[in-house]
Computed example of a mutant assay.
Amino acid sequence: LETHFLTGGDVVRVSRALVAAAKAGIELPFERAAAIDLAGRDVLDAVKTSVNPKVIDCPNPETGKLTIDAVAKDGIQLKAKARVTVRVNIDALIGGASEETIIARVGEGIVTTIGSAQTYKDVLENPDNISKRVLEKGLDAGTAFEILSIDIADIDVGSNIGAKLQADQAEADLRRFQAEAEQRRAAARAREQEMLAEVQENRAKVVLAEAEIPQAIAQSFRDGNLGIMDYYKLRNLQADTDMRKSLGDQTKPGKTNE
């Protein structure tokens, strides 16, 4: 006891733990009790929990989270609360994981079990299946506790997560399609402008070509390839063509003779 006191141990709690263990029929040597105390664990509370199992709320309300949320395969969210009954494993108390590990593992098991259910109705009809499957995983391995039971205290139906995800996906697809349509419209407008520019360019080429006709006629006169009668015939043909064009324009719908 003197050595334990000098090393910073709590002699009173160790002594009370030894007395409580002896009365409860729990084998607890002084060396182990002293080691547990020096490791920073409450050895007296450990003995009491070995005699009277402790109930742990999952999730821990002190963290601000009141339920464990999980989604079944049909997209419906379920909110569950569990109560885990544990007993301290004194042999694994030194170096064993704490209550937080138990809570985290149980929460993970509940989420996995609900997530593997085909519909949320299957979970509501048989909530005890969650406890059975979670217990089968051996979640107390490597911890300072032995899980005696896992009870689902409450389970409620949350929102339709699947429908929300589908709605968000549909909205995202709509924005993507609108962007693609706008891109195609912009490309069409650019192509239209290119075609208009090409038409103007071709018209300019026609005007330039027509401007060279008088020069070609004059050159034909000089070379003797075109006579005066041929020139008159060409002029008559042009006049006849202009007259036909004028008559055709007057007979179009919306045109009136002046």
Rank of each mutant, 00 (worst) to 15 (best):
G40V: 11
M229V: 10
D151N: 09
N52K: 14
D230I: 01
S98K: 13
Q215R: 13
G95F: 04
G40C: 04
R203Q: 13
D69R: 12
N202I: 12
T101I: 13
E146Y: 04
E194F: 05
A46V: 01
A117K: 03
G95V: 07
V86Q: 09
V12E: 12
F30T: 10
I217D: 00
S220I: 00
T241R: 15
Q178P: 00
L247G: 01
I130W: 05
D91G: 10
L226W: 13
N160Q: 09
A239H: 07
N202G: 01
G254S: 09
A92E: 11
N236L: 06
K48G: 00
K252R: 14
A117L: 03
K79N: 13
Q118H: 11
V123E: 03
P61M: 04
G9H: 10
T119C: 03
A70H: 06
A141D: 10
S149F: 00
K65S: 08
A179E: 01
L78W: 02
I147K: 04
A170G: 02
P61G: 06
A21C: 02
D242N: 13
R41W: 10
I56P: 01
S149N: 15
A170V: 06
E99V: 11
F145H: 14
V47F: 01
A172K: 13
Y120K: 07
A187C: 02
D10Y: 03
V43P: 05
G138M: 10
K205Q: 14
V207L: 15
A167Y: 01
S98M: 07
V71G: 06
